[in-house]
């Protein structure tokens, strides 16, 4: 895949930072306004999908390799679990909001709602990385017709 025309590439270059900022905004203020980790993660994944479409798969995978995406995916899930398990130690109960004592829920205050912003960040990492991975894996799959007219599935290897 070589990517698309110079018009698309230029527009993409102009809007990419805004898309990224919007995704981060949705994630970081997920506990205050509509949005949250999942929505923000989807927006960030869409940015990478747009870059992949505009510049081609090789270009995107050089900057954001598959193994890094896989690691971020696991890290996101792991952070979520760690936050949940820290509830054991500090609140005496799984998933308890142990930071709420220090950052109680206040309207429009960025540092509020205890552990929920942390959970949002973890979900954002997980969703962004895994949606990007799903896209890349499916874009790399090929169905090859064999001699006996059955189809064989093949995954193109990037590295």
């Amino acid at each position: 895949m070589k990517g698309m025309t110079i018009i698309v590439q230029t527009i993409t270059r102009l809007v990419k930072i805004f898309i990224l900022l919007y995704g981060l905004y949705l994630t970081l203020t997920g506990h205050l306004t509509p949005g949250g980790g999942f929505a923000g993660g989807v927006v960030i994944a869409c940015l990478y999908i747009l870059l992949t479409l505009a510049y081609g798969r090789q270009w995107a995978l050089r900057r954001f390799p598959r193994r890094l995406a896989g690691s971020l995916d696991s890290v996101g899930g792991f952070i979520f679990l760690i936050v949940a398990c820290l509830g054991f130690g500090f609140g005496g109960m799984f998933f308890v909001n142990f930071l709420e004592r220090f950052f109680p829920g206040r309207p429009f205050a960025l540092l509020s709602a205890g552990t929920i912003p942390l959970n949002n960040i973890a979900i954002c990492l997980k969703v962004a990385a895994s949606l990007f991975l799903v896209f890349i894996v499916m874009a790399g799959a090929r169905l090859l017709e064999k001699k006996d007219r059955t189809y064989d599935y093949k995954q193109e290897e990037e590295e």
Binding site: S71, S74, G77
Partner: peptide, 17 residues
């Protein structure tokens, strides 16, 4: 009781990492 879910999930993420 939550460890029945937390242990396998944590081990899975760590293994993948």
């Amino acid at each position: 009781l939550p460890l029945f879910v937390a242990i396998p999930l944590g081990a899975a993420f760590l293994t993948a990492l």
